[in-house]
Simulated assay, not measured.
Amino acid sequence: MNFKLQLVLAFMISVICIVGFSLISLLISDHKIISFDQTVIANIQGMESPRLTSLMKLLTFIGSTPFVIILSIGLIFFLYKVLHHRLELILFIGAIIGTGALNDILKHVFHRTRPHLHRLIEATGYSFPSGHAMSAFSVYVMITFLLWRHIPSKWGRSLLIIFSTFMILGIGISRIYLGVHYPSDIIGGYLASGFWLTVAIWFFQYYKEKSYNKRYNRGK
């Protein structure tokens, strides 16, 4: 894909994400999204069963901070030792740390309390945006972005996208099912991470392009 086209596409995605997040934030502040949240919660929790609860608890554990740290350390080792990536390593670490910092800032800005309708687990802290949703989105989008060009076959890339999509959506839905987040928390988390990752990847690609052009011009 043409580099300029990449930049335009990244800009458009970032605008869509920030506009979408702003809209969700306004609806939450004006209490105009309560009906939507309650309807989605009722439908998701209406499927409650022992086996599904076990699956949702597993997914929510996979999206927890301790597991994400372990997964991130494993990927960092893989990027450094196996693929011998340096810039990609910095991008991944910056994306994950930035996601956590952004989530903390946004939670303290909005001060939204968690739902109290039907909790299957306990959780502390503010509700919006969902930290699990933001973390899952950042981790699995970054995994897809960094591993994509190392998978030669179409079916392999398709499996990577399907797996990442399942994990992102599964972790988000698990938080609604377990009663610790509103659906709008999850959507807001995805949009916030989408904006942050788009900006981070944009700078990463821009830096790589500039570095390549410098080396190319020196070689002439």
Rank of each mutant, 00 (worst) to 15 (best):
H108I: 03
G94P: 15
T60S: 04
G74H: 11
G98T: 04
R112D: 00
E88M: 00
I96V: 14
L89C: 15
F110Q: 00
I69G: 07
K107D: 09
G63N: 02
G63T: 02
R86P: 07
I105Q: 09
K81G: 11
H84V: 05
L83P: 04
V109G: 11
F78P: 09
L89M: 15
F110P: 01
K107G: 11
T65H: 11
L75F: 15
G98S: 12
R86F: 12
R86D: 14
P66S: 04
L91W: 04
H108K: 11
L59G: 07
M56G: 03
I76K: 06
G98M: 07
A101L: 15
I62Y: 08
V109C: 11
I62P: 08
L87P: 06
D104I: 13
L59T: 08
H108Y: 10
L59H: 04
V68G: 09
L59D: 07
L58D: 14
I62H: 02
A95L: 06
D104V: 13
H111W: 06
H111K: 04
G98Y: 03
L55S: 03
F78G: 08
L55D: 01
G98P: 12
L87G: 14
L71A: 15
L71V: 11
K81T: 11
L79W: 10
L59E: 03
I76S: 08
L106V: 01
